[in-house]
């Protein structure tokens, strides 16, 4: 535990020093405020209006931005240290590879969580103040759930970043793999699923389909945030195929936790086998 915390504290400090924490916080806050302000532009007005609309559009944007940020934050954690020579050094220290990777996760997870809570939290305060809903429980319940799911989505992709970082032999290759991972989950997977659905011409029943969505953490995030919002109907695309009613939101958060755990576990396993 001591080792994990030591590594975690160092990674967190890195995150502060590199301005990652600040940058992510500011990006999230600006996105949230921008969407809240211009979100209703389609209906011919600007200004802070409906909370539902804001969160639904935030979720649609977060699906693209959060995985990308998480991958960028952590894609070089292992391969970068290997290239610098510090990985070799760390392996001569009294800590296991598992402790090293877990420590890194603790640090990166903390950076993402704090930035997400601060960024969207500040945006929530502004929106609440502008709309006079500052003390309204539904604002904070909805925003709180959104933030929790956003943090978890980020963690899933931090784990994917480790996977990429452990597999890649050089940093540029890791960057490329991270980009491929991102494209796959935010774009290719859904297109492929749609193609499958159309191509199969009804052979895949509507009962199975929602479960296929669970195979993509970004779809899980989408399902979690779009279920229960009326405004979602217009935005949800794939996720609206009856799936939103099938899963309880907190269950979907658990699925994201599972995604994080499994992906991290595979990364740790492969790290164990990586040549020093």
């Amino acid at each position: 535990m001591h080792e994990i915390l030591a590594v975690g504290a160092k990674e967190f400090r890195d995150g502060m020093r590199n301005r990652w924490l600040l940058a992510i916080t500011v990006i999230f806050a600006l996105f949230a405020l921008g969407l809240a302000y211009f979100g209703a532009a389609a209906s011919g007005q600007v200004g802070f209006t409906s909370l539902d609309t804001t969160i639904v559009s935030l979720a649609s944007l977060a699906i693209f931005v959060i995985p990308l940020i998480a991958l960028l934050l952590a894609y070089d954690s292992v391969v970068g240290e290997a290239e610098a020579g510090t990985l070799l050094l760390l392996l001569s220290y009294p800590l296991t590879r598992f402790q090293l990777l877990t420590g890194k996760f603790v640090g990166h997870a903390a950076v993402l969580a704090i930035a997400t809570v601060l960024g969207f939290g500040v945006a929530g305060l502004v929106i609440g103040g502008e709309t006079g809903q500052l003390l309204a429980p539904e604002l904070w319940r909805a925003l709180g759930f959104f933030i929790a799911s956003a943090v978890l989505l980020g963690w899933v992709f931090v784990a994917f970043a480790y996977l990429v970082s452990v597999v890649a032999s050089e940093k540029p290759r890791a960057a490329g793999l991270a980009l491929v991972t991102w494209l796959f989950f935010v774009l290719v997977f859904d297109l492929g699923l749609l193609g499958l659905l159309v191509g199969a011409q009804g052979a895949i029943s509507n009962d199975v389909f929602p479960y296929l969505l669970l195979l993509n953490p970004t779809d899980v995030f989408r399902l979690a945030n779009l279920s229960g919002f009326e405004a979602a109907q217009a935005y949800s695309g794939l996720a609206s195929v009856g799936a939103a009613q099938l899963f309880r939101p907190w269950l979907l958060l658990l699925v994201l936790v599972g995604w994080t755990g499994v992906t991290f576990g595979i990364a740790a396993l492969l790290f164990q086998r990586r040549k020093p």
Partner: peptide, 28 residues
């Protein structure tokens, strides 16, 4: 034991003291 690998480049963003503190913590 103590080990100095060939051509290691330490964490550029940290100060010398922070680098030593990190490794010191790991070695208790």
């Amino acid at each position: 034991w103590g080990y100095l690998p060939e051509s290691v480049s330490f964490y550029e963003q940290l100060t010398g003291r922070e680098v030593l503190k990190y490794f010191g913590r790991l070695k208790r």
